[in-house]
């Protein structure tokens, strides 16, 4: 596949997109767009976004897209897929939606091995609401609700979501963690995740380490350093469950 600046499945009319400068969402969606292009499945895709920054993807693609509520994109896509098994349902959400308010949906969809793809953008904060502590905020991380840094004794340790669901993932599930610092490998992960669905094997969950300089209050260099060092140290990148 030749490297394009813009995947075919991106909707040109809505570009440039609405994410903040330096935000990782555009890169996640680029990796997804490349994977869909390479499998040529745009016609089958139903793309659902959560609320939070992920909602800004509601008109991002030339896919049929629905923006839902906080944490609820997983059951929404489960419903669509259950009645139309030939669809490729993709639930796109942040770490707050996946691991806090909607964690029961992620856990149960994994348990049932629902044939859907879940993409979780982990940027260690609630971004759209103004930078509060997320389930994924790192120890010591300063957020609006942890002004002196996340104190594990009080606020607990960050949740490693993929590891959690990998602990009980059924046969056929695909669970991986990628990073926006390496978009091409990320798009390969996305492609494998989608293939897992097309082969009707099981659920596919991809967490992507991403950036939020707006809420991290970092410049370009520190943003990248935080992603590459602190985050990647705590959240190891790679495939956790595959076959």
């Amino acid at each position: 596949m030749s490297e394009r600046s813009m995947p075919l499945s991106w909707r040109k009319e809505t570009k440039p997109h609405k994410f903040c400068p330096g935000c990782g969402h555009g890169l996640v969606l680029k990796a997804l767009g490349m994977a869909v292009d390479s499998l040529d499945i745009a016609e089958k895709v139903v793309f659902g976004c959560d609320i939070g920054c992920s909602l800004l993807a509601w008109d991002f693609f030339d896919f049929d897209t629905v923006q839902t509520h906080h944490g609820r994109v997983v059951p929404f896509i489960v419903g669509a897929k259950r009645v139309r098994p030939n669809l490729v349902g993709i639930a796109y959400m942040g770490d707050g939606g996946a691991y806090a308010i909607g964690v029961q949906h992620l856990v149960n969809a994994t348990m049932r091995n629902d044939r859907i793809m879940v993409i979780i953008v982990n940027n260690t904060v609630y971004a759209m609401t103004g930078g509060q502590m997320a389930p994924t905020s790192l120890p010591g991380q300063v957020t609006e609700t942890t002004p002196k840094g996340r104190e594990p004794f009080r606020e607990g340790y960050p949740l490693r979501g993929p590891e959690m669901i990998a602990s009980f993932a059924p046969e056929g599930a695909y669970i991986a963690r990628g990073t926006v610092s390496r978009v091409r490998p990320l798009s390969h992960v996305m492609e494998r995740a989608l293939k897992n669905l097309l082969d009707d094997r099981g659920i596919s969950v991809v967490e992507v380490l991403s950036t939020c300089p707006t809420n991290w209050r970092t410049d370009a260099e520190d943003t990248w350093k935080y992603l590459e060092k602190e985050m990647t140290d705590y959240f190891p990148v790679g495939e956790l469950v595959s076959s």
Partner: peptide
């Protein structure tokens, strides 16, 4: 897994 899921899955099914 709960009524939220029942409700949103119903919405997903209807929209599909």
């Amino acid at each position: 897994e709960d009524e939220l899921s029942a409700g949103f899955a119903t919405l997903g099914g209807i929209m599909a």
